[in-house]
Design a protein around this nucleic acid. Sequence first.
DNA 1: GCAGCATTTGCACACGCTTGCAAAAAGCGT
DNA 2: ACGCTTTTTGCAAGCGTGTGCAAATGCTGC
Lengths: 336, 336
Amino acid sequence: MSQRDFVSAEEVAQRAGVSRSAVSRAFTPGASVSEATRQKVLQAAEELGYQVNHLARGLMRNESGIVCLIVSEVATPYRSALLRELTQQLQIVGKVAMLVNTDRSDGSVDRALQQAIRYRADASIILSGLPDKSITQLCLRSGQRLVLINRDDDQPGPLRINLDDHEAAGRVVTAFVRAGCTKLAFANSEAGTPSLMAREAGFIAAAKAHGLDVVVERYGWTGYEAGKLVAQRLLTQSERPDAVFCATDLLACGLMDAARHQFSLSIPDQLCVVGFDDIEQASWSSYDLTTFAQPVAAIARQAVTWLGESPSSDRLEGHSVTLHAELAWRGSVRGG
Amino acid sequence: MSQRDFVSAEEVAQRAGVSRSAVSRAFTPGASVSEATRQKVLQAAEELGYQVNHLARGLMRNESGIVCLIVSEVATPYRSALLRELTQQLQIVGKVAMLVNTDRSDGSVDRALQQAIRYRADASIILSGLPDKSITQLCLRSGQRLVLINRDDDQPGPLRINLDDHEAAGRVVTAFVRAGCTKLAFANSEAGTPSLMAREAGFIAAAKAHGLDVVVERYGWTGYEAGKLVAQRLLTQSERPDAVFCATDLLACGLMDAARHQFSLSIPDQLCVVGFDDIEQASWSSYDLTTFAQPVAAIARQAVTWLGESPSSDRLEGHSVTLHAELAWRGSVRGG
DNA sequence: GCAGCATTTGCACACGCTTGCAAAAAGCGT
DNA sequence: ACGCTTTTTGCAAGCGTGTGCAAATGCTGC
């Protein structure tokens, strides 16, 4: 294998004329070192290009500084935005992100968590998929923190961060009603994740409260193409909907494009559309989509600060946080 | 601190009734263990939920299995797509990605590389920014491999993966000329990275070869908003361009939206547009943008296979790979 | 100068793993 | 049964670091 040769604390100690422990202490905030030797060490380290070996440090301290991010569909706008916030927040508190892509087969979330354990990650943050309960238990038993984002699992132990999907979906109905819409539809994928289903259920429930029915169409994976296909199905029905709530902005973009370019419908005059996530493209003037903003920064902050807190408090019970999704009014619904 | 308690090889050995070394060997492919004890160990490990400590393993083997990805603007479509491919490819060869976000201040690329060294990453892949030469030297001296993607640096040592930007830009001119365009423009940002500048230079050079002038406009950061603003500047000129090559798809999207919605221009009838990157949105029917496809999968494969090769071959000279950007013909240019 | 105290320093062990080496066990041909 | 070779096994050293403990050093006030 490659002949790797990083400089060690030993060499620094030798050059600075001190003991190896002095070097260690010089790099440990709050350790007992005189300013004089600290400077000698730091200079020697600088000259040699010494960097503390975090593998060894993690081994000793029993704290690696690694946080594992488990995520599929990394290249999706919402996911990548969340990724950006998480990595940034983590770095601020001195941790580093290990990214595990679970796009391949399923059950790979479990293997991802195993990977996290192998590297003795201080915590794992799961953005997609759901781990097997046994693996979750193993993580907690090993003292690894766990954060579930937007996966409404009821296992105790992990921190669960969710949005008020159900309630938010209700607010869409009133918006549609105020715009004078009567034939409501919901566009979803077949993924069936809890958050998607909560939006669907909330929408239907609120519609019923207004005495309105809603046509539901689900197709494939939650992306642009699926949105186009759902549009085909919805807009060719005998009673064409005049308002559709899409479970996701990507679905909404696909649906809007199909509505305009294939069915020559004008938005919002003939069709009102609302999405969810507030991805960057939602604000592009071709879409100008009214949508719910995922508070990605707040989500990331919640997750990271929880990691910093003392774990003793609610180790057994776990913690659940519900954040508010604010409706970003744009031009895809009449009468904002 | 948290009382972490992972199960160790010692406990597994005890339960399986073998020595520590047997456990170690059971988890080392190709090590000398009898099938019988191997099974005993594996079962005990399974029951206890044992996972090899990769920090300790990395310390011994002098090979962490970590590859550091250094990247800014993670949430950008092109970057996130590259990220997806890289993580996937890395996982296939049994490595794991450590993601360092350099969005904050500059010079942070250097700090990111220091982080990579601290964790004894086997390699670092730089997707954005450029490291200081001294840090690069330190990495190489320490035996850490380095890959630069689309940053045309001439330092020896690292693997440099680039596209044929200059030549590709030339092909745009012929496409525009064939479409009957005569008033060419180039839309760029002020980022000034080598790949962006190569596209600009290639475009101008090829235009000159055809006896055509080109108006260049640069503004801000390479994104959608910049595209809109560049459009304002370009389309209000006395001699309005009839064809514009955008250094990036995001710029192109912004420019197209402005052209259509603010200037009521029809694309491609009154204005031809070509972009670069082939982000997902380029194929959305609202844009249907003719653009150059970044061969993200090929780039990732190149990087990862190079990491697997023996380092002895060209340690000093480094290696440079130029990949081909294929033009994806769509509807934003007349007469594909 | 010296006792008394606070601060700094070095030694040595521990963390969990891999691996060379020699001893033990197993296979094999006669 | 024996000697021989091949495989398997345990011991112990080592990877680079943090840290408790005791020794050493530096101060302060007489």
